[in-house]
Every structure is written in C-alpha cells, then in structure tokens.
Design a protein around this nucleic acid. Sequence first.
DNA 1: CAGGCACATTAACACCGTTAACCGTACACG
DNA 2: CGTGTACGGTTAACGGTGTTAATGTGCCTG
Lengths: 197, 197
Amino acid sequence: METLERKPRSHEHVRAGIISTARKIARQEGWQAVSIRKIADAIEYSAPVVYEYFDGKEVLLNAIRDEGFTYLNEQYHRIMKLYRDPEKRLYEISLIQWDFALHQPELYQVMYNLEGAYCSVPVYQSDALQAVSDTICEIIFSFIPKAKESIRRLYFEWWALSHGMIALAMTMQDVQPLEQSEQTYRESMRQFVRRLR
Amino acid sequence: METLERKPRSHEHVRAGIISTARKIARQEGWQAVSIRKIADAIEYSAPVVYEYFDGKEVLLNAIRDEGFTYLNEQYHRIMKLYRDPEKRLYEISLIQWDFALHQPELYQVMYNLEGAYCSVPVYQSDALQAVSDTICEIIFSFIPKAKESIRRLYFEWWALSHGMIALAMTMQDVQPLEQSEQTYRESMRQFVRRLR
DNA sequence: CAGGCACATTAACACCGTTAACCGTACACG
DNA sequence: CGTGTACGGTTAACGGTGTTAATGTGCCTG
C-alpha cells in the first residue's frame, strides 16, 4: 500500500473539482442548469464517478451549502477578533453578509434555496448555521443582556432584515442598481444596530 | 375509443384545472415535484394538452405567479377601502402579506422563486407586481410626503422586512413555531409603521 | 360520400438522476 | 511465473422530465 500517499490527495482534488464545477455552472447558468452529467463532463469523468464522492445530488448540494456557512462563520470570527465594540461587530458582520451574498451568489442561493436552487435537507440541520447563529446571539447579548428568548427574537429580526434586503436586492438588480440597494442596506442595518442601544 | 365517457369541459375549466392541479402538487410535494405529465394525469388528459393552454412550463408558472400578485392586489384594495388612516392601512397590509404567504405558501414560493420553485421570467416584469408596489408607495407617501426616491427607499425597506421575516419563518417553522414568528412579525411591522411618523 | 375541422393521443427526442453490470489494469499471493 | 482479485473507471440501462411532430378520431358541413 505504498500509493496510499498519492491517492487521497487526488481524491480530494477530484472532490474539490466536483464542487467548484457545480458552483461555476450555477454561477453562470443558475442552479437549474446544474446536472451530474454536466459536472462529470467538465471534470472529464463519466457520471457515475460523481457518486463515488457524493451519494447523490442532495448530498453534493448539502456539502456546498455547508461550505457556505463555514466560510461565513470564518468571516464572522475574523470580525470578532478585529473589533471589540458590539455595535461595530454587528454592523461589520451585516456588511460581511452583503458582500458574501453578492460576491458568491450561487452559495447564498443554495444556502437558502433561492432562485431555483433546491436542497431538501433542512437548513437548520447544518452545524455551521448553528455556529453562525450563536455568534450573532452572543454579540446581541453582549450589549443587550436580556432573557434568552428576547435575544432570539432580536436575532430573528436582524437576520430577517438582512436576508430580506439581500434577497430583494438580488432579484431586483436589473431594475434597481445594486449600489443603491447597498446604500439602503447599510443605512438600514446601521439604524437597526443603533436601535439596540 | 372510450373518449365518449369524458364529459366535455370548457376551455376555461381545463385551464383552471391545470393551474389548480399544479398548485395542489406544489403544496403537497413541493414545486420541484410539479411536472407537466403529472398535471396531465391528474386532469385526465395527455401531456401535450397542457401545451394547448400554456406555451411551456415557464408560461404556466408565470401565470400562477401572476394569479398570486393579482390576489394580493385585490386584498390590498380591500384594505384601502376598509381603512383611511395610512398607519392602519400599512399595518393591515403587512398582516395580509403574512396571511397570504402562510395560507398559500406555494403561491408565495413561485412569486419569489423560493424553495425550489423557479420561474425564469423576472418578477419585476409582472404588471400585477407593479400595481402592488404602487399601492404601497401611495400609502407611504400619504403620510410621508417626501421625494419619490425617498419613498422608493422606504418601500424597499418595508418590503424587505416583511419578505425576510416571512421567508425565514417559513424555512424555520420546524424549529421555531409559527405563532412565535407571527408575533415577532406583527411587532416588527408595527414598529416599522410607527417609525414612519 | 368526401372533406375539413377540433380535439386528443401516441411516439419520439434529448435530457435528467441513479444504478447495475462490465472491463482493463495493476498488484498480491501461491 | 501464472492467477486471482481489488480498484478505478466505463457503458448501458431504467424511469422520469420538458417538448414537439405525427397520427388518429369523431363530428359537422358541403
């Protein structure tokens, strides 16, 4: 078993290729256009090979979704280390959310089943989402030490406001320029954070 | 053949049957389970018949979406006749939005391409959406007579807040009870309207 | 009776997700 | 050395999808 050293690496390479190809197709043609065969063609394999790495399309989409939440979580922690002020933290994280959604729209779409993307695994089952939620709740708590239920409510409001503006801005970007939507987003999130005082 | 048994059905009846069948399947199994053949089976026709009424799935979905916006528009006008106070009007319309989304989720999903529903026709091309938008903007203007751009911005905020909370409440309903989400929704919308004063 | 018309169906094409069967190669072992 | 076997990958197939062309079928009219 000398070749054990090389195999896993190429294995990981192929796996990453599948994911990045799926994302590329989704970004260019929408999630509706992503098919196993198209992915297989792009990585120059036959379709069944994909099933060696993911037990079906569901699992592949779920893996990509998880990648999204994990990335988001990393960005959150970057902000947490960068700032200490809770107000600044929450505002900066709001901006992270915007940048993430607009720079990697295909990820944001599969995370929330937007624009034809469909991953039947419930989003709330993702551990990474749980981590993301906890981070936000922690920030809110740090300058509004209320009851746990009250915190959850504020978190829900923050999330809804952010998600709603992002989702609408994405679908309306042909009729309302993104710069304008972004300005409104920043202002709204700033006001939300301000109101928490 | 046995075609004698089938009762003659009017054009409108069949058309309505196609739409209501599509909605029924979508409601029970999700939009990604809706297929032309399944619809045809349910209305006891062969698949090509559907194409006599709608030039492809796209057009069918778009028609259903339009039905949604039209219904919403009717509800809006009902509220407009019922109340004169702008504050009351906007709040009641917010509640309409919630009820609509939760009682007819398959409509709300196809209107905004949620949960696997996908209608490639841009939503902003719907005349009914335009009418809905105008109604909201009119209300906002009636008690905040600012510049047109400012009104559009407030409308965008109202819409995003409503849509965000509804979308999240729908996807999270297994982990957060709808009654709780509804309470938060009402409170948030109430505060939003209040802030407009 | 022939023709045309309206309606509906069958058959086909090119895809899709998924799986079973197969094939060649390289390595391990008798 | 020969042989078996495990592995990496393929082809082929099944049932399903959207969509369209060709084909009936019954009925009304000239």
